[in-house]
Write a protein that binds this DNA or RNA. Structure first.
Length: 781
RNA sequence: UGGGCGGUCGCCAAGUGGUAAGGCCCCGGAUUUUGGAUCCGGUAUUCGAAGGUUCGAAUCCUUCCCGCCCAGCCA
């Protein structure tokens, strides 16, 4: 297979498809779904959606969009006790906000209760389910454990009529909660706990938010989900990894009853983010215990929280796309999410001036009553957007407290006694005097002078200053509440601490509210509007914000390379040395301490064979054991060795090639005979064909049988071990890859494998690789 | 340790016998009236470990190690 990335018609590189999209694409190409692909996003309306759900939404709706199919929104509302219409509205709102449309495909699992009931009846009729009257505790006790099988329920063999009658009466509401359940009749000894006669219906005299009091019985997820998928014609049912164990039941139930379609469940890894929690239960606790202000608290990883914080749907989609779809457990760094909101807002957000911690500055040489309106563009030169406003400039100003230091470290480019700095869009000023509180010593005011020659845009001074800082005019600035948000938890894995409850790990500084000052134009900011407060970060006017009481949420700070310098030891510190390589993960062990291979499973006869293979035929102990432990394989091997007496070579082919094919099919179903394999090995030993070609012959024999010599003849695979024949091929490869030749000569020696590969490819595997290596080396070195 | 699934750079993630993609982070440098943005360059001789097969292994074979999931009448 080629390693070069796929290229589209415009010549751009396409990113590789994730494993799910690969399956969908292949299914479609194979004509498996003439009606098109159908996916679904199935939230339970018992909480708010979070960024992890966004990953699933982007996947499900994205696949449908990309492959011309559709994606249903289906509320998985089979547990009336926890669910609420409040959540269904919030969920719909969030999905629309994220930018996806379910069209006509809005469903509820509860819409199918009648059909689901009929499936259950059918299952009972076919002996696949029974009414179990054990108590909840008894069911738990008889389920067994992961290492011990469960025990069958005494009600397991109830006659079908009785089951049907009881189930009908369950539906009729004749029994109290917990009196009976309907259970699938599968296997109490299954190694998969999910297959030990799982409960599929329970009695719940509870009002359902959607069906009201129509039903006193409710199906369980495992039963309702696959059947709902089938009813909707879902082709690919994409869910998270924890449902892998449920797939066996998913497939089982679809075979037991008459369904209109057969969906396929595929699992992928859920998204985790560091410095937060993502489970619904924990999020619910944070809300209910008032650790946060609600589901939409801007510190929450909920879509509602992110939205209120000021995140854009584009940023979240970009993030979800960037993390990919795979099957390994993962925790993505918050920094990756932050990258996408900065990247989006950099293009979109107008720049304005605002202060988090104001410090007064008086320009002693600026006229008392003068006010200049300075033109300030909303976007920097590198953002292709137009627009500007004016900002008032006057004698009394405020700057950011952080932008002044009495004793500046090296590389500090801001204000300090006697130093000059530019006020953004305005003049260069010099700090002449520092006024301090006589009691506390705190700096309360800076007395500065401005240079009238340096007005922004018409600077005639020729002065260059290192820093530019932001400011507002004291008389014109507006007060605003700035909500400075930081990570919700102070440790990256709040759930990974065995000692402490995650609640103890909440970051006490996750919200800092300050009284800031903002430029006058912000008086018109509407809730939801986003700005870049220059040099501070991106902010979003909160829904709480009014013209009289402005409130801005900090979405994310700007990247701050000065902060990085300070954090790694201050401006005076030398550059940080390179990070050492991480220590190897645990798991390495001393080979000498390893246990010898277990001989325990061998029968006495097998043991004898094993010893014979090892001691008489000269096989490695591990190989001998491997062959001896499988009677079919051992028989095959022995027969082959009788034909071609090279036990090691034959064993290698049996172990390394044959066994790989046995994973698909049993040995006796293969058209391959021991004699044929022996002949193949003989051909290779005699150097008639190369090992490479041998594999092609083998593949042919495994597929269709036949004699190796015939196949070699038919495919023309005789080995080319003649330097004169090979030389032109080698030369061609060398001239075709001048860049790689140069690289190789500069020391990239592993390129030799590349060249050998090219030669092997152009001779269709027939060349003698040793000879190719020799020739190549002679020519390249 | 009964079963299921994972392990490739600090964090994600491609890659399934022939040159270890890409993104985030990080490190240089250029540029800059945001210490922002942008640009250019750098960062895995190695794929959980050890053995083996092969001219050639992240990919095939063997053994081992580590992590996650399953014992709700939740989803």
């Amino acid at each position: 297979m080629s390693k070069t990335p796929k290229t589209d018609t415009a010549g751009r590189h396409e990113p590789p498809l994730d494993f799910i999209r690969t399956i969908v694409r292949d299914d479609l190409a194979g004509g498996k779904h003439p009606g098109g692909v159908v996916t679904r996003f199935p939230p339970e309306p018992n909480g708010f959606l979070h960024i992890g759900h966004a990953k699933s939404i982007c996947l499900n709706f994205g696949v449908a969009l990309e492959f011309g199919g559709r994606c249903n929104l289906r509320f998985d509302d089979t547990d009336p006790a926890k669910e609420d219409t409040l959540f269904v509205e919030a969920i719909k709102d969030n999905i629309r906000w994220l930018g996806f449309d379910w069209g006509e495909g809005l469903y509820n699992a509860s819409d199918y209760f009648e059909e689901l009931y009929r499936f259950a009846v059918q299952l009972i009729e076919r002996g696949g389910a029974y009414v179990c009257s054990l108590s909840e505790a008894e069911i738990r006790e008889t389920r067994g454990t992961v290492t011990e099988p469960g025990r069958e329920s005494p009600y397991r063999n109830r006659p079908a009529d009785e089951n049907l009658d009881l189930f009908a009466r369950m539906r009729a509401g004749e029994f109290p909660d917990g009196a009976h359940v309907l259970r699938a009749r599968i296997d109490m000894a299954s190694p998969n706990m999910k297959m030990r006669d799982p409960v599929i219906y329970r009695i719940r005299h509870v009002t359902h938010h959607h069906t009201g009091d129509t039903w006193p019985i409710y199906p369980m997820y495992d039963f309702a989900h696959p059947l709902s998928d089938a009813l909707e014609g879902v082709t690919h049912s994409l869910c998270t990894l924890e449902f892998e164990n449920n797939r066996e039941f998913y497939d089982w139930i679809l075979e037991q009853v008459d369904v209109p379609s057969t969906p396929r469940q595929i699992e992928f890894a859920r998204l985790n983010l560091d410095y937060t929690v993502m489970s619904k239960r924990r999020l619910l606790e944070l809300v209910e215990e008032k650790h946060v202000a609600g589901w939409d608290d801007p510190r929450m990883p909920t879509l509602a929280g992110l939205r209120r914080r000021g995140y854009t749907p584009e940023a979240i989609r970009g993030f979800c796309h960037s993390v990919g779809i795979a099957k390994s457990d993962n925790t993505v760094e918050m920094g990756q999410l932050e990258y996408f909101i900065r990247d989006d807002l950099n293009q979109k957000a107008p720049r304005v001036l605002a202060l988090e911690r104001p410090l007064k500055v008086v320009l002693t040489n600026y006229p008392e009553d003068r006010v200049e309106e300075l033109e300030a563009p909303y976007y920097p030169h590198d953002v292709p957007k137009e627009g500007s406003r004016t900002v008032p400039f006057s004698r009394a100003l405020y700057i950011e407290r952080d932008d002044f230091l009495e004793e500046p470290p090296k590389r500090y480019h801001r204000l300090a006694p006697g130093r000059e700095v530019r006020l953004r869009y305005a003049y260069i000023i010099r700090c002449d005097e520092v006024v301090k509180d006589p009691v506390t010593g705190e700096v309360t005011e800076l007395r500065c002078s401005y240079d009238p020659e340096t007005r922004s845009g018409s600077d005639t001074s020729g002065k260059k200053v290192q820093g530019t800082i932001h400011w507002v005019s004291a008389a014109h600035a507006l007060e605003a509440e700035l909500r400075l948000y930081d990570r919700l938890f102070s440790v990256p894995y709040p759930q990974g601490d065995l000692e402490r409850d995650y609640r103890e790990l909440l970051n006490p500084k996750s919200l800092e509210t300050v009284k800031g000052l903002v430029e006058p134009s912000l008086g018109a900011a509407l809730p939801g509007e986003r700005f870049q407060f220059e040099r501070l970060g991106y902010f979003c006017a909160d829904p709480d914000s009014t013209a009289d009481a402005l409130v801005f949420n900090r979405i994310v700070t700007l990247r701050d390379s000065w902060l990085k310098i300070v954090q790694r030891g201050g401006g005076n510190a030398p550059r940080r040395p390179r990070r050492p390589r991480a220590a190897p993960k645990s798991g390495a062990q001393n080979p000498a301490e390893r246990k010898p291979p277990a001989h325990a499973g061998l029968t006495p006869a097998q043991h004898t064979s094993m010893e014979r293979y090892r001691d008489q035929l000269g096989l490695a102990a591990g190989d001998a054991l491997l062959l001896a432990s499988d009677n079919d394989l051992a028989g095959f091997f022995e027969e082959a060795v009788r034909v071609h007496e090279n036990p090691k070579a034959v064993a290698n082919w049996v172990i390394h090639q044959l066994r790989a094919h046995l994973k698909e099919k049993p040995l006796n179903s293969l058209p391959l005979t021991p004699t044929a394999l022996a002949e193949l090995v003989a051909l290779i030993d005699a150097r008639t064909i190369s090992g490479n070609a041998g594999k092609r012959v083998f593949a042919e024999m495994v597929e269709r049988g036949g004699r190796p010599t015939d196949i070699v003849g038919r495919l023309g695979l005789r080995q080319v071990a003649d330097a004169e024949q090979l030389e032109p091929v080698v030369d061609a490869v060398i001239t075709a890859n001048p860049d790689n030749v140069a690289l190789y000569r500069r020391g990239k020696s592993n390129l030799l494998g590349f060249f050998v590969g090219q030669v092997m490819k152009s001779t269709q595997g027939k060349a003698n690789p040793r000879l190719v290596n020799e020739l190549l080396r002679a020519k390249l070195d």
